[in-house]
Write a protein that binds this DNA or RNA. Structure first.
Lengths: 193, 193, 193, 193
DNA sequence: TATGAATGAGTTTTCATTCAT
DNA sequence: AATGAATGAAAACTCATTCAT
């Protein structure tokens, strides 16, 4: 019937959840339709196709992550350690809540099969690395900063994966705890100099 | 009089490559048939179905990893550090050659959609963790050994993922280099005690 | 307070163009909506459905042809040759402008699939033949008049088709030129008798 | 079931008939499947898609026309008039049997919507014109030969269309009769010179 | 063994149409 | 009048699987 049943934003949020659980290729438009209470055809009123819907879900996550995590970056009231802790805490919270990393899960699936989507996700990781690098540059030399940023994010993604595999959140909490400690220590050392 | 064109082992090896590139759900039996020079129907003489073929590929990889990596475990001529370095080297070599981790790629895809396969892969990771833990137990207390094993493997898998995303092997080489250094240092310290 | 954006007549004219280019079955209501600056749903305020819209376009063309071509029929100031030349000129002009014959294009498509539309178009051709026959009857015996009328119209439609296929207007201009010459000659001969 | 039910050639022949009746866009793969006693999916075992099937039907018709009509061209035992009469007879017979011209019907539908198909059909008309031109060149000057060829073929196609519209075969028989007479007369005149 | 043919269930997508606002 | 949302039916196409040869 012709009145609005679900907003576009709601559909995207639902799609995000379904895609996170089932992956890109194994999620059908029917699945998302059913989950959102619409009929298959109605989805095409809001999105040109499955790919566009997937990218909308990615952009939605990216945007939220930006606002939630990267926002601290430009907050001048926070010192380096506070900024990093904010990022670490936000990352931990998000991945725990989602019980996995949509970005990683989808990425591995589409990297050789859906370049448009892969590109979308790549930008997310680039931006994440870039943000962390930027903060770390306040205490490390540029090259070292980027190296640590890459290492840390890789470690987090690896931990999220293991968390999913073993259904064991300690993988995630430990990496984040480790990062927090490392940051504290390194900053202490720098300041001592 | 149809003579054997491709051996079962060859098919598995080819399937492993295709699955690694394209994932489980996006790889069709046609894809594998084409890649192996057979027709679709012929695959069913060797495997009951797609799932069995996938699991054969997983088992094959698992077996190779076992022989290649875990073998060092029981070699009494090697000391702890040598054993660990062997493991680290083998891991690095394998992931570099495959340009990705089939186990991780497939796992994330099937974890909620194909439990039989997921279980198969889970065992691989369990065994890997177990093996590393065992070696580390020669120098660390049991709890700590397992913790480090989990951390290290998570870090490696995260690095493999990033390597794929950014098409940059340094993610992988750096983690392995880091592990080598850590092992050397830790063992030195223990021995000093 | 929705004010009128496009008149019904304008929609029909636009539909006529789109149908001429793309045919009946391959033209969607969306296509026509888009071309006319309306949304799909709005078309249904003016027409019961696609079929009615198609028939409106046909009727519109038919009406124009009637006024433009057949009008000469009852003009008592014109002699037979002038009437025929008027018809021939109008036909040539119309088909050149439209770069094709909507009536023919649509007819062949719907003849076995949409009888209501087919009937509509059939009437157009009947009327056209009838009109030409009527004029020709002023110089030919009735049977012969109809025969020539049918032949001429068939020749024109065949030429329009070839014009579209080869994107070559000479097919059309030559047939019309041939008809003009034939008319002139035949009438001369009759008068000589 | 896995044994062959219909040959590829039979499918093409059936498709040709269905396409001729219903046109390209309004014929679904289901229609053809049903008409040929196969299931929808099975058609894709023989043809990559609808377009390929359509083109196969076109090629089949083209080939038959070539063998049936154009063959006389190179038969040195026939004189010009005999060759032309063969062509005219074959054309008449074919269009009467098919109760329409698939080539014309489909062409008008796809000319702006499926260029690959349009091109296929265009080649058929080009070849037809070329063949007639070649024979006519034996009695007419080259330019005149081609002009008459084009005119004749356009006239035939127009007549076929009218035959379909009015379900009246006399359109077709008369054009062909006219052509036969014209040929006879022209050749007589030339010989008189 | 190998394969070509067939199939049913499912995929993404299109589309004419309806209707509350 | 206009429109955005919704929908059911059907379109083209895919694919894992079966089986006679």
């Amino acid at each position: 019937m012709p009145t609005q049943k679900v907003t576009k934003t709601q559909i995207i949020e639902i799609a995000r959840q379904v895609f996170t659980k089932q992956g890109y290729h194994h999620t059908s438009m029917s699945d998302i339709a059913e989950a959102s209470g619409l009929r298959k055809g109605s989805l095409y009123h809001h999105f040109k196709g499955k790919e566009e819907l997937m990218m909308a879900a990615i952009d939605c996550f990216h945007q939220q992550f930006k606002e939630g995590a990267f926002s601290a970056l430009n907050n001048e009231e926070l010192n380096t350690q506070q900024k990093l802790n904010h990022l670490i805490n936000y990352s931990e919270k998000t991945y725990l809540e989602d019980e996995g990393s949509m970005m990683a899960n989808i990425m591995l699936e589409v990297i050789n099969t859906a370049p448009a989507i892969a590109n979308c996700i790549k930008k997310y990781f680039e931006e994440w690395i870039e943000s962390v690098t930027q903060i770390l540059s306040e205490v490390y030399p540029p090259k070292g900063a980027q190296k640590i940023a890459k290492e840390s994010i890789a470690a987090i993604e690896g931990a999220v994966m293991m968390m999913q595999i073993f259904n064991d959140k300690s993988f995630l909490t430990r990496v984040h705890e480790g990062l927090r400690r490392r940051v504290a220590q390194d900053i202490l050392e720098r300041e001592a100099v």
